[in-house]
């Protein structure tokens, strides 16, 4: 838990631009919602090639994968209910290559649509929040005794050395 908190603080206080962190959150959310497959690998490639903050991406990916254990069934049922449109089914059946992305699987389709819808707003909101944090909260937070104690702890120092 301490490590996780230290990691978040490290990212927030780092030199990474707010946009890099914002996109890390957005793409991490998209990858986390999707069941692991070719789409996840493509997102991972995108994250590696662009200067998106990797640590943020991996953190949000893990968190959102956990959330899908709770909300996965509801999303699956919802997709099954609303994805029976003939035009959509025709499009998904068009080529075998398209089926490599498993978008004809209810959970993949539902998660993909939800992730794409949330991607821009979440990336934008993440950027704004990081900017707000750095502008207003960071300097005050650094003075908190708890944070200073945390930063001074051996575990965090060890973690920072390893990174």
């Amino acid at each position: 838990m301490l490590t996780l908190l230290a990691r978040i603080l490290k990212v927030l206080n780092s030199e990474a631009s707010p946009w890099q962190i914002g996109w890390g959150i957005g793409l991490g959310l998209l990858a986390g919602l999707l069941p692991f497959g070719l789409l996840t690998l493509l997102i991972l490639l995108l994250v590696c090639l662009l200067t998106v903050n990797l640590a943020t991406f991996l953190l949000v990916w893990g968190l959102c994968s956990g959330l899908m254990f709770i909300f996965g069934d509801a999303l699956e049922s919802l997709t099954w209910q609303y994805a029976q449109h003939p035009a959509l089914l025709q499009l998904l059946a068009k080529s075998e290559t398209l089926q490599l992305f498993h978008l004809h699987h209810t959970l993949v389709l539902g998660a993909f649509v939800l992730g794409i819808l949330l991607l821009l707003p979440v990336a934008w909101l993440g950027t704004i929040l990081v900017k707000q944090y750095r502008g207003r909260v960071m300097s005050k937070l650094q003075q908190w005794k708890v944070v200073q104690m945390l930063k001074a702890s051996k575990l965090v120092q060890l973690y920072e050395n390893l990174n």
Partner: peptide, 14 residues
């Protein structure tokens, strides 16, 4: 009873 991830009924499934 439903499965965790169902395949949509595509018009021409391979």
């Amino acid at each position: 009873i439903t499965l965790a991830n169902r395949i949509l009924p595509l018009p021409s499934q391979p």
